[in-house]
């Protein structure tokens, strides 16, 4: 089920929370929604789920418009809101049955669906408890279970892994990845490794505008045209080694790292590698090269570049 977001604008007062954004998500795609707090992630998700009306623009899920046929769209979407609101005094099974009925699932299919969700979300040992008695991680699983109870074509998850322990995080990510093969998934998060681990595509938004769109590889490439190496040279005078490295043809910038040992961060000119020239220099001068590590630009840096301004 494809989702098309067109020229979406949403204001709170005079402040534009979402500013004329457009994007398209295809079936079988897991889209990671990244952005600092208050960037407009949750607002966009709320508009897609029909909780908020946009000031301008429209969202189409499959063939249905959120503005014109919200009830149809709501049936196609499973939603896990940001802080996962649940009814604490309801039992897990009762709550899932309630969600299933509201989604219009046939009465005789409800039991097998609940059993399936309890299995998929790993709720078996806690299923007879009240939601209020559950730990945060299990509540999150109940939230996921209610979002998926009607086997929706589209899943919208607002920070799905908050409050989970590392094991559960890995499990939920695996689950999302698996679901993403047949469904369309949009998830938002602050956690960058999470996006790299689960998402096929990343959308970074800042101040209501899309600032980057692509796979994690393509975004990383876009951010770094230049090679960056971390080099440690022993048996050499620090200042001389610095000068010599600096005079190499391929090297653009040498940055000696603080400390007593001869650590340098070396940035090459665009599209050339300095690995060979550095090695050759060391052979020529009789230095001992004990470390040469390529420094990858992390998604974190890209994120900071794009959102801090």
């Amino acid at each position: 089920m494809n989702i098309t977001v067109e020229n979406l604008t949403r204001k709170y007062g005079t402040q534009k929370a979402v500013d004329n954004i457009s994007f398209h998500v295809r079936t079988g795609e897991v889209l990671g929604f990244l952005g600092p707090n208050g960037a407009g992630k949750t607002t966009t998700m709320k508009i897609i789920t029909g909780l908020l009306s946009p000031n301008n623009g429209d969202v189409t899920v499959g063939n249905y418009s959120v503005l014109k046929e919200p009830e149809k769209v709501k049936q196609l979407i499973g939603f896990l809101p940001e802080n996962n609101p649940l009814y604490p005094d309801m039992g897990v099974i009762d709550y899932l049955a309630y969600s299933a009925r509201l989604q219009g699932i046939a009465e005789k299919k409800i039991k097998p669906r609940i059993a399936e969700m309890i299995r998929v979300c790993g709720l078996a040992i806690e299923k007879h408890k009240q939601i209020g008695e559950l730990s945060k991680g299990y509540r999150q699983r109940v939230g996921l279970a209610q979002a998926m109870i009607h086997d929706p074509k589209v899943l919208i998850l607002d920070e799905p892994t908050t409050g989970l322990d590392p094991n559960q995080i890995v499990e939920i990510r695996r689950l999302i990845k698996e679901l993403g093969k047949e469904k369309t998934v949009i998830l938002s998060t602050h956690i960058l490794p999470e996006v790299e681990a689960t998402c096929d595509r990343i959308l970074i938004i800042n101040k209501g505008k899309i600032v980057a769109d692509g796979t994690s590889d393509s975004l990383r490439k876009q951010a770094t045209g230049r090679e960056l190496l971390r080099v440690r040279i022993e048996d050499a005078d620090r200042d001389r080694a610095f000068m010599e490295l600096h005079s190499l043809e391929t090297v653009a910038l040498v940055d000696p790292l603080p400390g007593t040992s001869n650590y340098f961060e070396i940035q090459s000119h665009e599209n050339v590698s300095s690995r060979r020239t550095i090695f050759n220099l060391c052979v020529e001068k009789g230095y001992t090269l004990t470390e040469m590590t390529p420094v990858e630009t992390k998604l974190e840096d890209l994120f900071r570049d794009l959102t801090l301004n």
């Binding site: 789920t49 029909g50 909780l51 149809k72 809101p81 609101p85 969600s99 509201l102």
Partner: peptide
């Protein structure tokens, strides 16, 4: 929970 309820059909 009202928000979750209103995202149901």
């Amino acid at each position: 929970t009202i928000e979750l309820l209103l995202t149901k059909p």
